[in-house]
Each structure stands twice: as structure tokens, then as C-alpha cells.
């Protein structure tokens, strides 16, 4: 993913539109290659996952955040640090479940969908499903099994884009030694 703005002097900084356009080309190609939207969603999620498991190292290497000890802390880091770093926006964290294991990220704008209108007949397509995969993959590498999905999408006529994250379990056997 493109890393935007606030990394002054980084020669690798690219225009955010490059990412948006590349992503658009990817989704358009997937729609051509696969028969239905469900399969496209699945592929996007898979690609996102593969990005997430690598991206997390980049994030940890730069962001200087410690280990999160509850899901609220995780939500804060994702919204305020990670989204800010990679997409240049800060989603609102809300709709906490009473047990504190589920929350939503509310995005008023989504840089991925900047120039996008969904063509008719793609009501099942989660255009930005790559984000779900990336979140899932990244959290899995820090030993959290989390379910991530879209519940609202501006592209589908909703007022806001909402990504729901549900904590399933901590991957105990994968926790590195000396961190419990």
C-alpha cells in the first residue's frame, strides 16, 4: 500500500492516486477473470491477507507501538496509527459490543473508492475487500485471530463505509516466548 504524506523526506513516497488506480485495475481484472462477485471477494481477501502478514512487520518496524493487551487498544492503534500511516486517514472506532470483543471502523471516505462507481449487477462485490484481508493477516501475525468484514459500503448506497472486526481468539501457541 502506498504510504502517504506525513513521512517527510522519504524517497519512496508516491502519489496516493497511484495506489487507488492500481487497485482499481486489479479489481476490474478480477471481475473479468472470475465468474461471480463472491469469488472476487475471496480473491481480494486472500491477496489482502498476504499483504497483511508482510505489512505488519513494516508497521512494527516503524511505528514504535508496543504489544496491545486488550482489543480496545488494538482498535486505537489500527485506527489512529495504522490507517493514518498507510492510507492517510483516521477512521472512527465505534459500535462496541458489550463484551468488548467487537467494534466497527467507520470510514467517511475511502481512498480506494475515490473514482469508483459500481456497475449494475455487482451488488455482492465488496470492492475494498482487500482491506479486510490485510487487517486479518496483520492481526494474525501478532497472534490475534479476528474476523473482518464489510457491513456497510458507500459504494452500495450506504451513508458510510463500516468495517466490522470481531475478536475470535488469541493464538496462544504462536505467541513468542517471553511475551505473555
Amino acid at each position: 500500500m502506498s504510504r502517504q504524506a506525513n513521512r517527510a523526506g522519504d524517497p519512496r513516497k508516491v502519489n496516493g492516486e497511484l495506489f487507488t488506480l492500481t487497485y482499481g485495475a486489479l479489481v476490474a481484472q478480477l471481475i473479468k477473470d472470475y465468474e461471480n462477485d463472491e469469488q472476487v471477494n475471496k480473491q481480494l481477501d486472500k491477496m489482502g491477507y498476504n499483504m497483511g502478514v508482510r505489512l505488519i512487520e513494516d508497521f512494527l518496524a516503524r511505528a514504535n507501538t508496543g504489544r496491545c493487551n486488550d482489543f480496545r487498544e488494538t482498535a486505537d492503534v489500527i485506527a489512529k496509527v495504522a490507517f493514518k500511516l498507510y492510507l492517510g486517514l483516521t477512521p472512527v472506532v465505534s459500535n462496541w459490543s458489550t463484551t468488548g470483543d467487537e467494534f466497527s471502523l467507520l470510514l467517511e471516505s475511502n481512498p480506494l473508492t475515490e473514482f469508483v462507481e459500481l456497475p449494475p449487477g455487482h451488488s455482492n462485490l465488496n470492492y475494498s475487500n482487500l482491506l479486510c484481508g490485510a487487517l486479518r493477516g496483520a492481526l494474525e501475525m501478532v497472534q490475534m485471530d479476528v474476523d473482518v468484514r464489510f457491513v456497510q459500503d458507500i459504494l452500495k448506497g450506504d451513508n458510510i463505509t463500516e468495517i466490522r472486526l470481531k475478536f475470535i481468539k488469541r493464538l496462544e501457541d504462536a505467541v513468542p516466548v517471553g511475551e505473555d
Binding site: 512487520e57 512494527l60 518496524a61 504489544r67 504462536a174 513468542p176 516466548v177 517471553g178 511475551e179
Partner: peptide, 24 residues
């Protein structure tokens, strides 16, 4: 809640180990 070995010292060298959150 102890970490693992961070440094190991001998009279000719010192070994430093940093474990990332992902276990590398």
C-alpha cells in the same frame, strides 16, 4: 513475564538479540 535472553556477554564478543512481536 520475563523476556528471553536479550544479551549474552563473553570477553571477546557480545551477543544481542531482539525479538519482534511477530516472533522473528
Amino acid at each position: 513475564h520475563s523476556s528471553g535472553i536479550r544479551t549474552m556477554e563473553t570477553d571477546t564478543f557480545k551477543l544481542h538479540c531482539h525479538q519482534t512481536m511477530t516472533g522473528v
